[in-house]
Amino acid sequence: MTKGKLLLLFIGAGLLTYPLLPLSSDYVLHVMTLAMVYMILAMGLNIVPGFCGLLDLGYVGFYGIGAYTAGLLTIHYGLPFWVIVPLAALNGALWGVLLGAPTLRLTGDYFAIVTFGFSELVVLFLTNEIWLTRGPLGLPGIQPITLNLSWLNKAWYFEFYEKTPNFYIAALMVALVYFIMCRMEDSRLGRAWYAIREDPLAAASCGVNILNYKVIAFAISAGIGAVGGCFYARWSMFLSPDMFKFWESFLVLCMVVLGGLGNIKGALLGAVILVCLGEILRESLTAIGLPAETRFIAYGLIMVLIMRFKPSGFFPAVASSGRSNPLLIDLQKRLAAGAAAKEKSRDSAA
């Protein structure tokens, strides 16, 4: 294990034990959990612009669909969180397919604008269909996440109102999504997506069904967005249509861009950086008398500058599986040794 990996492990372990420390503050825990929600969202969004090279401006629509699915199912039917997560993911993916199938055959620009229109329609629907969503009043009183193990032991029924258990559930979900993303990236699916991004014509002539793979990418991305929304609904226990405006899509997109398009670890780091930056800016901007929304000027600037000077982000994606392949590492070593030996013999000959 290299030094860098060891350091990362220590940081990770330190962060995971943070809520157990006596000095942990609720605010920091809240921000950390929020950062993890955005990590899930950023990883999900990353599939579409990162892996497939299509701009998705309506990601928050799926986040909102997931959140409201979870909120309504909880309030009206009292379903447990663990049942709602797959349902919300399916609902998100369904809308992803419905929206993606007709539009993904067009050029990327059209796709971007359709996704934008879709997310605006979702917000309008949530605001105006008062019979279902209570409209601008919002949806209060969503039950927190529960864990019902009373079939094992009568006392094992948990309701997670506290910050700490929510923190760990979020961490679990991030780990799960991360694992899924990494497996997908290295699979046939991931290779097809990369091929489409790099050269659609070449991909098509190699037998990749472009439309199918794009729709799959969009549906999976939508499903993950819905999962993020689902956790958010049960964690914050309140939903309102204002939470799902275009700004959120923009913020998540900015995270993905900052970390480097197509880079899963980058998306995680982008989420952390921008959530922290957002908190700092919110405090400092209101301190100097500007409205907190103006913090988006920084996000806009970040996107423009990154695209101009570092289009692949700060953590450009490299073919990671190739680098960790033991055969390749061995070959590299032998080649280096051979070159060194040749150099030596030439020196001695001279």
């Binding site: 612009p49 299509l54 701009l55 900015c254 000027i297 806009g300 996107m303 695209m307």
Partner: peptide, 14 residues
Amino acid sequence: RLAALITAIGMSIF
């Protein structure tokens, strides 16, 4: 194309 589109969105927000 994606880079230019993202820049356009960024400029709009800015």
